[in-house]
Each structure stands twice: as C-alpha cells, then as structure tokens.
Amino acid sequence: MKIECVIDGKMLSLNLNSNKPLSLVLQEDLDNSTVNAHCRGRLCGLCAVLMDNEAVLSCMVPAFELNEKEIRTFETFQKERSMRDIERAYDEVGVKPCETCYQSRSIIIESLSNKLLERPNTPSEQIISELSVIDCSCMDTEDMLKIVKRVTDLKRRRNVRRS
C-alpha cells in the first residue's frame, strides 16, 4: 500500500504493509533511532510520537491511518523550542527520565502540558494517571508532577508575553 505522509519534516511516499504499526515503520523502514521499543501489546508507553501535534503510541497506529498525517518523532522534537522548556524543567526539578524512556516521556509531557494550558484545573491524580502509561519507574510521582507543572507554567508565560 502506498502511504503519503510527512515524517520529521520530510514528505514521504512509502510502500508499506497496510497494517504495519507506525513504530515498526519508524524503526525498520526509516531507521529512526529515537523509537526503539515494540512491546507487542503490553502498552509500555515507550514509543510515543506526535501525530498532528498530539501524542500517540506509535505501536497503536497502523500504516493505513498515516495518509496525510504529520508525524514528529523525538528526532525533530528535540530541536524544538518546547523541548528547551522541558529540559529546563528537568534541570530545575533536578531529575530527568532515564535514557530508556527519555524520548517518550518528553513527548508525552509536551502533549500533556498543552492540554493543561487549556484545562488548568486538571487534578494532579489525572496528570499522574496520564503519565502512568509509561512503564518505567525512574522518577517518583512528585518529581513528575513538578516537571509537568513547570513546563505548563513556562508555556503559559511565553504565551502571555507573545500576546
């Protein structure tokens, strides 16, 4: 099946199996070094990418859904301004995710912080619940919450300055 989409800023025309998961497309067809996990249904949460600006688990997206979509993996996301905010939050809180989940967690934090901008009264339990999709216990819940809130705060301030 021919799929046309934008991945990491490149317009691509790919010949893929229609039901091939995006995670395997990235790993095997595009040699993307930032998506390395494929847990076969255990929902490890380590394969997150941004599809049309929203975090998705790439193992759950079949190739046939990719037509006309824009995918950004950590490969491009790490160069964006938003990632600077996230790195700053890691630095200020004094803890960052381990190398196994760094990429995926950063992308999920990005998506989550964008939602929190729209819904600032989201309870902490829900934030923690959203982050629990990642099956890696390298950070405690308090630190995770602080990071997400700090990233949201940085984005809010930037938005205020812009307006």
């Binding site: 902490s124 339990e125 923690i128 216990s137 390298c138 950070m139 405690d140 819940t141 308090e142």
Partner: peptide
C-alpha cells in the same frame, strides 16, 4: 525506584523520595 520495581513494589501517587 528501579530496585523497587524489581522487587515488585508499586508507588503511591504521593510517594516521595
């Protein structure tokens, strides 16, 4: 945290080190 995970523990929502 990694050792706790290996031991089979889960963290509470308010767990702090």
């Amino acid at each position: 945290l990694l050792t706790l995970e290996e031991c089979g523990a889960v963290l509470s929502n308010t767990c702090k080190i």
